[in-house]
């Protein structure tokens, strides 16, 4: 079976892997000229379904639980399994209680244990939460690794082309995010920074809770740190705003004052595609399957969506909808 995948973001690449491993002849077509520039490129890369459950519904935890294993299999060496540390300033410990009551899979840590986990944060926070089963990756490195792996498996990549001109295929999978013509989709703007400083070392993503400006810092190689991310109901791709920059920098500085001397090596803006329930969908239409609405959970939920899409492509029952029971459905049940 020949499958054309439109879009080389995290949804397209994971779908390509699922289909290629099941024996399909896969072509990935991307209008951009390289892997970069899409929403996935600006992602945090946290595989943190337990933390996300603070504001996301149960399907995000159910579908995201195996994501770290998936990435470990598809891109060996890319996943760091060091958990997530969640901290709050002393005046915001109410936020920590709130976070703890909304999530599971964590244990409380005190000043000493925070120091053991992240020596550079010693003495800065008295209480925190540790989510030991969470993981993270560098989205750009992981996408490059997956691209190389797929190329080695015989997947054909065509960058800088309009997929509409490619006609020889049996099935098509649309993974075009905000470019999809779907009236139900809206964009949620996320702004991020990359800072570089040799003065701070972190082993895992750290989330700093705040009533208004919650933020996370994800360590990357080369003394770099991804700081993210805003959530604005807008599909504007314009540069990061001064206010957002101040919020991100203010929170980074609150996490560790040494970030005040860090270099800002990059600012980025990604538009997260979201359906009204902020949950992803895999849908079949004719001989095409669409994966979209990954919202802020691209790397976390793309593997599960890719599996569902591959299942749809290979199954006879092409009308089957993925089952994910939302909190609202459970309430009305």
């Amino acid at each position: 079976m020949r499958v054309l995948i439109r879009g080389a973001g995290v949804a397209g690449l994971t779908a390509a892997f699922e289909l290629a491993t099941r024996g399909a002849a896969v072509t990935v077509a991307e209008t951009r000229h390289s892997l970069g520039g899409n929403a996935s490129w600006f992602a945090g890369g946290m595989l943190a379904p337990w933390c996300e459950r603070e504001s996301a519904e149960q399907p995000v935890l159910d579908l995201g639980r195996d994501a770290a294993d998936w990435w470990d299999t598809a891109t060996p060496g890319q996943v760091t399994r060091a958990g997530t540390l969640v901290v709050a300033a002393p005046r915001d410990t109410g936020e920590l209680e709130r976070f703890a009551s909304r999530t599971s899979g964590h244990r409380r840590v005190d000043e000493d244990e925070i120091e053991l986990l992240e020596p550079d944060l010693a003495g800065r926070f008295r209480r925190g939460l540790f989510f030991p089963d969470e993981a993270h990756l560098d989205p750009r490195q992981a996408m490059a690794a997956l691209h190389d792996r797929l190329a080695g498996m015989g997947v054909e990549f065509r960058f800088g082309v309009d997929a509409r001109h490619i006609s020889r295929f049996d099935r098509r999978i649309d993974c075009t995010g905000m470019a999809a013509e779907d009236d139900r989709l809206r964009g949620v703007r996320g702004e991020m920074l990359i800072l570089r400083t040799p003065d701070v070392s972190l082993s895992r993503p750290v989330r700093l809770l705040h009533p208004r400006f919650p933020l996370y810092v994800v360590p990357r190689t080369g003394h770099r740190f991804m700081v993210g991310a805003t959530m604005i109901e807008s599909r504007s791709t314009g540069p990061v705003t001064a206010r957002s920059m101040m919020e991100l920098l203010g929170a980074a500085y609150a996490l560790h004052p040494a970030f005040g001397e860090a270099e800002i090596v990059e600012t980025g803006v990604g538009i997260r595609p979201a359906f009204p329930d902020n949950l992803p969908r895999v849908e079949a239409r004719g001989n095409a399957v669409a994966i979209n609405g990954l919202y802020r959970h691209g790397f976390l939920l793309a593997p599960a969506m890719a599996r569902q899409a591959a299942g749809l492509v290979f199954s006879q029952d092409r009308t089957k909808e993925p089952a994910h029971e939302t909190d609202r459905q459970r309430r009305s049940a």
Binding site: L185, R186, G187, R189, I232, E233, S234, R235, S236, T237, G238, T241, R243
Partner: peptide, 13 residues
Amino acid sequence: RREMAGGRAGEKF
């Protein structure tokens, strides 16, 4: 205030 940056980019919401 914040959503109107970039014209009517917040229209969908």
